[in-house]
Design a protein around this nucleic acid. Structure first.
Lengths: 341, 341
DNA sequence: CTGAAAGCGCTTACAG
DNA sequence: CTGAAAGCGCTTACAG
C-alpha cells in the first residue's frame, strides 16, 4: 500500500540499487538517470521509510531527550528549539520525562536504548548538578543541557555571567548608582555566577555595589520580604535606587512589595529580572524588564552539536554558554528595545 | 557488538524462530525450552531491537505528539503523562512542535509520517478549536487533546463543567452567598462552559448568582481591573463575598486588586481560581485555592486510548472529559485537602 | 555507469 | 514441539 523504493525503481525503469543511489545523491551516474528516478519519486510521492533506513544503517535518526523538569518552563522551549533544528536533517526527538524518580529514569533510558537513539540530550534544571550522572553506561553520544557535566562531557547552559552583566550595565546606563542584587540560594551556581558578575560589572565601571548580594529563595516571597526589609521607613538616599533580581519571581515579589510600600517603580527604584518568563514578566505592574536566556537557541545549538558528534566530527568538550539578551519593558523606565549580550 | 536474537538462540541451543517465540510468549513449546531461552536472554542482557521489530511488524512502536503550545504550560504535563503511560508497553513518544506556523506543522507531520508513527496525538490550546484540521490526510489513528475534534474523532479535554461546579460548590459550602464569576473571553468554550456551570450550580442549590458572569481577557489585568470596579467605594453588603475566577491569572490579579483596596482575602472575599498552575497559584498572597485539571492523567488516558485504537479495539468516538479536582490553599479560608470532582 | 545479491534484526507462514 | 526460509524496505560491498 505504501509506496516503496521498488515502486520508484520500476517506474523509472532502473534497479533498486540505482534508485537508492539516485535518491541519496550518491555514486556517479548519468544525470539523466538521476533526474528520471527523482521524477518518479515525486510522481509517486515516495517517502523513504526511515525505519528501514535505520535498520540497515545502524542509525535510528532519533534523538532521546531525557528530562527531570516536570514543570516544563525550561524544557519545552529547549525541546522545541532542538526538534526544529534537527527535523530537516531527518531526525526526530523522543521525549522521556522522569519526575526525579530513579526507577522511571531507568525505564525511560532503557526504552531509548532499545529504540537505538543515535544520541541523547540530558536536560536538567540546575547548571551545577548532573542529575543523570551514573545513569549512563552506554556509549551513546550525549549532550547535556541546563545542567553540569563531566570535564570530558559536552554541555550547553545559559550565559548567566553575560546576562547579569547586561542587566547591571543597563541600570548603570540609566544613571542608577545604588544598585542592589537580590537572588536565589547561594547553593545554586546560577545565583553565584550572576552575583559575581553583578559585583564585577560595577567595579569595572568604577561603581560600588550597594551592599552584598542577598541570597535566598527563588521565590516571590523572597522578593516581597526584601522590599519591606530594604525600604520600610528608610529615607530615599539610604535605600537602593535599582535592584537587579536573580529571577522573575523575585522581581515580581519585589515590585509587589515596593508597590505595597508606596515606593514607585521605576521612578524611585528600577527593577530588572532574569528569565523572561513571558506570561509572568509581562503581567507585573509595571511590566518587567528582564534577561532572556535564549532557551530555544540553546536547544538548537545543542541539537546541531549532537548531530556533529554522531557524525563523528570533532567537537570540543566543555560547557558552551549561549547568549542572553535584555528585554526592555517598563520596570526601569527605558525605551523598549532588545539588547543582545 | 550488540547482542541479537541470534546470540540468544545459539546460547540456548535453539533456532532463531524458537527464540523469538519463546521471548514473545507465543506458540506452544516445552516449558523447559521457553525458560532456557529466557535465561539465555537474561544472561546476555538481550534487549530486542525495536527498529527491526517495527520493520517486520509494520509498526514503529512510536506515537507522535504534535503541539502548537509554544509555552508548554499545558503540553508538558500532558506529554509526561502520555509518555509514562505507554513506555511500559514498549512505546515511545516523538515530540513535534510547530509554533502556529503552518509550514513548520507540515514539515513536522511529514517527519512523523516518514517515521511511521503508529498513532498521533494532536494537542492544542483551546477546547473549541481544531488547529490541526485539514492537516491530516493519512489514516493514522489519532487522538485529540486539549482541542476540539470532528464528530467522529476522539478527544480528551478537561472537565470544565465539573471543575466549575466543585469550585462554586466549595464557596457555597463555606457559607458564601454573593458569589461572582470573572472569567476569560466569551469566545472561548472553556470560559462559556465554566460560566454556565457556575450559574447552574447556584440555581440547583437555590442560590442566585451575583450579577452575570463577567467575560474579559485571561489576564491578571482583567482580574485587577475588576477588583477595582466591583469593590471600590462599595459597602460590604453590596459587593460579592466570593469570586470564582476563570483562571489563576485572573484570580491573581483579583487578589492583588483587593489587597490594594484593603479588602481582606479570604475574610471579606473568598477567591477560587482555575488551572492550578502551581508555581503561580502557590505564590499569591494568600496562596490560591484552585481547580486542577488533571493534565497528567489526561495525557495518560489519551495515550492508553490511542494504543487501543492502534490495536484495533473498539473505541467510542467523541470527547472525554477527564476529572478535575479542587486544590485547597488559603484564599477561601477552608482547611487544606483535595476534593475530587 | 548500472545491477544482482547479501544483509540489517527481527517475525511469521509453512513444513516437518 | 521445533526449524529453515522468506521477507519487512532499505543500503552497500562486489561484479560487470
Amino acid at each position: 500500500m505504501r509506496v516503496t523504493i521498488r515502486d520508484v525503481a520500476s517506474l523509472a525503469g532502473v534497479s533498486v540499487t540505482t534508485a537508492s543511489r539516485a535518491l541519496n545523491g550518491e555514486g556517479r551516474m548519468a544525470a539523466e538517470t538521476r533526474t528520471r528516478v527523482q521524477d518518479a519519486a515525486t510522481t509517486l510521492k515516495y517517502r523513504p521509510n526511515s525505519i528501514a533506513k535505520g535498520l540497515v544503517g545502524g542509525r535510528s535518526f532519533t534523538l532521546g531527550l531525557l528530562t527531570n523538569d516536570t514543570y516544563g518552563r525550561f524544557t519545552l522551549p529547549v525541546a522545541a528549539g532542538l526538534a526544529n533544528a534537527v527535523v530537516d536533517r531527518g531526525v526526530s526527538v523522543l521525549l522521556a520525562s522522569y519526575q526525579d524518580d530513579p526507577e522511571l529514569a531507568r525505564i525511560n533510558l532503557q526504552s531509548l536504548e532499545d529504540r537505538q537513539v543515535d544520541g541523547l540530550i540530558l536536560a536538567g534544571k540546575r547548571i551545577d548538578r548532573a542529575p543523570h550522572a551514573g545513569l549512563l553506561k552506554s556509549g551513546i553520544p550525549t549532550v547535556h543541557v541546563m545542567s553540569a557535566c563531566d570535564d570530558d562531557g559536552i554541555g550547553f547552559v545559559p550565559d548567566d555571567d553575560g546576562g547579569a552583566r547586561i542587566a547591571t550595565q543597563h541600570l548603570l546606563d540609566l544613571g542608577r548608582r545604588r544598585i542592589a542584587h537580590v537572588t536565589g540560594p547561594a547553593a545554586f551556581a546560577a545565583a553565584r555566577i550572576r552575583a559575581e558578575s553583578y559585583v564585577r560589572t560595577l567595579s569595572d565601571m568604577g561603581a560600588a555595589h550597594w551592599g552584598d548580594p542577598i541570597f535566598g529563595a527563588w521565590s516571590e516571597q523572597h522578593g516581597f520580604d526584601l522590599a519591606l526589609q530594604l525600604f520600610d521607613g528608610k529615607p530615599g538616599a539610604d535605600a537602593p535606587d535599582a535592584i537587579f533580581c536573580g529571577n522573575d519571581q523575585i522581581a515580581r515579589g519585589m515590585i509587589d512589595g515596593l508597590t505595597h510600600l508606596g515606593v514607585g517603580v521605576p521612578d524611585d527604584v528600577a527593577i530588572v529580572g532574569f528569565d523572561n518568563w513571558e506570561i509572568f514578566a509581562a503581567a507585573t505592574r509595571p511590566p518587567l524588564t528582564t534577561i532572556d536566556m535564549g532557551l530555544v537557541e540553546l536547544g538548537r545549538q545543542a541539537g546541531l552539536c549532537l548531530l556533529d558528534l554522531i557524525d563523528g566530527r570533532e567537537v570540543a568538550s566543555g560547557l558552551t554558554h549561549t547568549p542572553s539578551r535584555l528585554v526592555i519593558r517598563q520596570s526601569c523606565g527605558a525605551l523598549s528595545t532588545d539588547i543582545a549580550v
